[in-house]
Design a protein around this nucleic acid. Structure first.
Lengths: 356, 356
DNA sequence: GCCAGGTACTGTAGCGGTACAGAACATCGA
DNA sequence: TCGATGTTCTGTACCGCTACAGTACCTGGC
């Protein structure tokens, strides 16, 4: 049996194919009476409506935008903060009727989503800007927005003020009187273990910016922090736990620990408590993100809040406008947005124990 | 400037358009030498590779599968269990190179993702089977797999054994000697508040199955549970908190509470503790899912484990095979898979206090 | 009675590819 | 030397739809 297409319907009704197309896609182009008749016949014939692919080809729009997530999707999907970001995206996207296509950045033989999937534009979230997937998107000249990545010329970007946020966190620790401070981060490039700044090798933008903020604040007070880096891999909570154990086992144990994320901080606190020490009595801990978990754990976590939902929404708006611009003008100036962060002081920070 | 297409490249190299197509898509169809030349010219001209949309139209595949999530994407995205499911999907999908397109089930004017987005098949997760979105997918005759939904004839499905899992949870409570038992669930249809079984109105399949399992086990022991239903909306943890407060304020306070999910159970435990009571000393609490949070909270939660990751993987495999089948045979028998559940006894359950 | 300005519908020309059936030529065993 | 078998490349016929530029007819103002 031949497939039912616009033409089939047109033949049955006795009108041109174009009129049937209009009946579905531009109701104002024909009389209501004819339209009803066409729709009725279409229904009887089992015609569902214009084929999305064919429509995309003819009209040049895919009704979907892509989201490129760092490496394995799996990793991002277990991160509450990334998910809140996704929720922001979904919210802002919903009224547009656009679908969201998840692209894995992992290089694959054969099918490469970033190259092979139809989409109107793409969000690139916290990816290596030199990855093949990003390369494909750029070659396709797809409208793009970089999120939590180094802003690139010509490409719109949305970031939070990581550096200022981290600086405030560092200042908070300084003001409390701490002088033995450790930093726990994780990431992809560069060295791992207990390392001394400045780090060699390219770091992820967010990690780099936060490091910069913390060390700015600390070195202004003459403090040289101990930096412990772990490869980003597996559960960040466990990563924090292990990292804290390492720090506690060292000769000069810190009285304050600044963490790349709340998820890491949560593990750090667990490790400290399991070692029989008090947070913040013995050691203060500061996170980053204001993950929902931050308010839940005990002691409630002092952290740097970012509005992940707003970040998602802003990214979508930026992408929609980039798509719009691409239709008309070959290249407009790309906007680089930086959202504010805010220090949230809760119960995990206090002055260092007397004598330290 | 005209866009660069296969034809442009073909003209420059002096071969037929088909040969250029083969150079990109079927390298074994031409000599390596010619292929290299074509690729070099294509690169010079800025040709990225076959346009995904055109390729989809001609070849009849979209390189993406859809995932229809209950109502608002936003809700699902904040749920750890749903995300683990998503991660399972992503993992299994990764080697195929297929992208995953998130469809919102929310009915929208104009663009309807379930109707307008090109895809090779769709996963339907915990949706109302009578929603317009599901309707569109069915009309499109897209290969589909129903997950956590009532199995429908002709459509493959993946479920867990909700009923048996719930029955085991109920039996556990019975064996501990409880007789004053409450159930806290949330859902979309039916009545809300403190209701008495059997419920009128259609419930979501998963809720219905679990209710069945719990009440089977309890009524076999002559226990009639108090059922408290809340509309699924907002944070399930808070929902559990509120629900528990209601239960604690009632005349005959329960000594055991069975919850639809671990997220709800977590809130229930908080409320009990905030009321100055002990879990499990005064009240036992049982969850469902074995959410990572279950092992983390104190007391660690007794719950019914389901392997969400395996569910995601199984769903993808089922869909891939449905897509495969659709290509050859008009309709094969649809498989209905039911995955096992397991009672995990931790620290949130104990015998009731003496005298109760 | 004529023309401006709608409204309702049609026809053609793509959108950018792939499938498939050959054609042209080389290789090879008998 | 001849057919059999490969390899490499080509040509045509779509895939199913929309954009756009008409054509035909109707309405109303002067």
């Amino acid at each position: 049996m031949g497939r039912v297409t616009l033409q089939t319907v047109a033949d049955h009704v006795g009108v041109s194919r174009m009129t049937v197309s209009n009946a579905f896609s531009r109701p104002d182009q024909l009389s209501a009476k004819l339209r009803d008749e066409i729709l009725a016949v279409a229904d009887k014939l089992g015609y569902v409506g214009p084929d999305p692919t064919a429509r995309s080809l003819a009209s040049g729009t895919a009704s979907a935008i892509g989201l490129l997530l760092s490496d394995t999707l799996t990793y991002a999907l277990t991160d509450e903060v990334a998910m809140a970001f996704l929720a922001g995206i979904a919210d802002e996207l919903a009224p547009t009727g656009l679908a969201l296509t998840l692209l894995s950045a992992a290089p694959k033989e054969g099918r490469v989503p970033a190259r092979d999937v139809a989409m109107d534009g793409a969000l690139v979230y916290s990816c290596n800007p030199h990855s093949t997937a990003v390369g494909w998107l750029m070659r396709r000249r797809l409208p793009m927005v970089f999120v939590d990545q180094a802003p690139a010329p010509g490409i719109a970007s949305v970031n939070i003020d990581d550096q200022l946020g981290a600086r405030r966190a560092g200042q908070h620790i300084v003001e409390l009187g701490h002088s033995r401070v450790a930093i726990v981060t994780s990431g992809y490039g560069g060295e791992f273990g207990v390392v001394t700044a400045p780090l060699a090798g390219p770091l992820a933008y967010v990690e780099e910016q936060r490091l910069q903020g913390w060390t700015d604040a600390l070195s202004a007070a003459g403090i040289e922090p101990t930096l412990l880096r772990r490869p980003a891999h597996g559960n960040p909570d466990d990563l924090g736990y292990d990292a804290a154990q390492t720090l506690l086992g060292r000769e000069e144990r810190p009285t304050a620990i600044l963490c790349l994320s709340d998820a890491i901080a949560s593990g750090v606190i667990r490790a400290i408590q399991d070692a029989g020490l008090q947070v913040p009595g013995d050691i203060s801990v500061v996170g980053f993100d204001d993950n929902p978990v931050a308010a839940r754990i005990r002691p409630a976590l002092t952290t740097v809040r970012q509005d992940v939902d707003a970040k998602g929404r802003a990214a979508v708006l930026a992408l929609l406008s980039a798509i719009e611009r691409a239709k008309t003008r070959p290249a407009g100036r790309a906007k680089h947005l930086v959202l504010a962060t805010e220090l949230v002081i809760r119960d995990s920070t206090a002055p260092p124990p007397p004598g330290l």
